[in-house]
């Protein structure tokens, strides 16, 4: 059996990749993919802990997270489409009408 620390390490690595991705990537769609990566890291950690504690509620939580992530992606893509129609760009740096 693989010890839980392996799962947690993988989850932490995935989460960090996601966080750094949201900071350094400039394409809106890529940023959303990085956010999904963060959420999946959370899911992995929840499932690992649920298995470790032999409990079911952590696994149920993962379903909620997945469903909400799907809704979030739908709303996010809708916003991106609306923005793209008005500006013809996917670069977040160009969304700079408002500063300070």
């Amino acid at each position: 059996m693989i010890p839980i620390s392996y799962y947690l390490l993988l989850s932490a690595i995935l989460f960090s990749i996601g966080v750094f991705g949201t900071m350094i990537k400039r394409n809106m769609v890529t940023i959303f993919m990085c956010i999904e990566l963060m959420l999946n890291a959370v899911n992995l950690s929840f499932v690992a802990f649920a298995r470790y504690h032999s409990l079911i509620d952590g696994q149920v939580f993962v379903f909620f997270v997945m469903a909400v992530a799907a809704a979030e992606a739908a709303v996010g893509l809708g916003i991106i489409v609306a923005l793209f129609r008005n500006r013809q760009t996917l670069n977040v740096d160009e969304a700079d009408l408002m500063k300070w």
Binding site: F15, F32, V42, S45, E72, I79, L97
Partner: peptide
């Protein structure tokens, strides 16, 4: 549009962080 994009990006990242915190507490 721009306000909405900034809101969802910040919101998604902070709730993602919050969830990771929840998973550690769990």
């Amino acid at each position: 549009n721009e306000a909405s994009l900034k809101y969802i990006l910040f919101g998604a990242i902070s709730t993602g962080s919050m969830l990771y915190g929840f998973s550690l507490i769990y």
